[in-house]
Structure formats: C-alpha cells, structure tokens
Amino acid sequence: METGANLKPWANLSTSLVVSGREVDSAFLLAELQLAASEGFSSSDGVDIYSGPGRATLTIDERHSESADEQAMELIGLLSPRKPALDRLKEAGKTVKVDFSGIAESGTGLHISPAVLAGLAELGVPVTFTTVRESGEGEEDPLAWLG
C-alpha cells in the first residue's frame, strides 16, 4: 500500500477561494477583498481572479506551485488579513469556501499538512475538493450496454 508521501500529486491542481451569490463577479471580489491595490496580488504569477455567472474565484494554480500546501499557504497569506471581509461576505448571504481542484487518477493523492489545515480552519470557511476530467477524455455512457 502506498503512503500519502509516495503518491504523485493531482494534475492541474488549483486552490481557490470561491464566492458565489447574486451580483458576484471579479470586480466585486477584488473590491470586497481590497485586492486591486495589493502589490503582492497583481504581480504574482499563477494567482488570478476568475468569474462566471454569480460567482468569482481567487485562484492559485500550478504556475505558482504544484504543491497543494504551497498553493494553500499563498491563499491563506492573502486571505488571513482579510478575514473580516470574508465574514462580511458570509453575513451578506454569499457562499464562501476554499476549494482544491485537480485531476485525481489512480496513484495520485492530495497531501495537506496539519499547519495548512489549521490555517484554513482559522479562515472560518468550508473546504471542498473537486476532481475534474482531463479535456478531451470521453465520458463513459452508463447506458451504452443497452445497445
């Protein structure tokens, strides 16, 4: 049996603060977290804001680091001083969480250290894990056996 230390990390790993709710987009998230004027945020490779209908993410991806711990520590470093803003978002009815996302295949794992888990707990938001499929990989049709 392989231990967590021997497993390869998830591919295409990213760690994100995800905020969703009415009127949430990238400009809203930048303003709420006061990141627009932050030097560390704007100059960091692999640290970006993305948005879709009713949601925005502050994402640290594998261009910054392939390690879940390093990605999470960067996110914690950006968010810890902004915890009051996270609390205000939750009080305003927005859904706020930290999500680890990547391609999880056989022989891969996601290692998160106790120090990172403690830092995430201090943020006071749920942590979720999302596994995705590699682009171009066909979905198996569960009804194919019917002919």
Rank of each mutant, 00 (worst) to 15 (best):
L7E: 10
K8Y: 03
K8H: 04
P9Y: 02
P9W: 00
A11Q: 13
A11H: 03
A11K: 13
N12T: 11
L13Y: 03
T15C: 11
T15I: 05
S16W: 01
S16H: 01
S16D: 07
S16V: 01
L17I: 07
L17V: 12
G21I: 00
E23N: 14
D25M: 04
D25C: 07
D25K: 05
S26L: 04
S26C: 05
A27Y: 11
A27N: 13
L29N: 04
L29A: 13
L30Y: 08
E32V: 12
E32N: 15
L33D: 15
E39F: 11
E39S: 12
G40D: 14
F41H: 12
S42A: 15
S44K: 14
S44P: 09
S44Y: 04
D45N: 13
G46C: 10
G46Q: 06
D48L: 11
I49Q: 06
G52V: 05
G52S: 12
G54Q: 01
T57R: 08
L58G: 11
I60G: 07
I60Y: 02
I60F: 00
I60L: 12
I60A: 09
E62C: 06
E62Q: 15
R63K: 15
H64Q: 10
S65G: 08
S65K: 06
S65F: 00
E66Y: 05
A68V: 04
D69T: 06
D69R: 05
D69L: 09
E70A: 13
E70H: 07
Q71L: 01
Q71E: 08
M73H: 11
I76Q: 05
I76K: 08
L78Y: 03
P81T: 03
P81K: 03
R82D: 14
A85H: 10
D87S: 14
R88Q: 15
L89I: 08
A92R: 12
G93H: 03
V96Q: 14
V96A: 13
V96P: 14
V96C: 14
V98F: 00
D99G: 05
F100H: 09
F100V: 05
S101V: 02
S101K: 09
G102W: 02
G102T: 01
G102K: 01
I103R: 11
A104E: 12
E105D: 14
G107K: 09
T108R: 10
T108F: 02
G109K: 04
G109F: 03
G109W: 04
G109L: 10
L110G: 00
H111Q: 13
I112A: 02
P114V: 00
P114G: 06
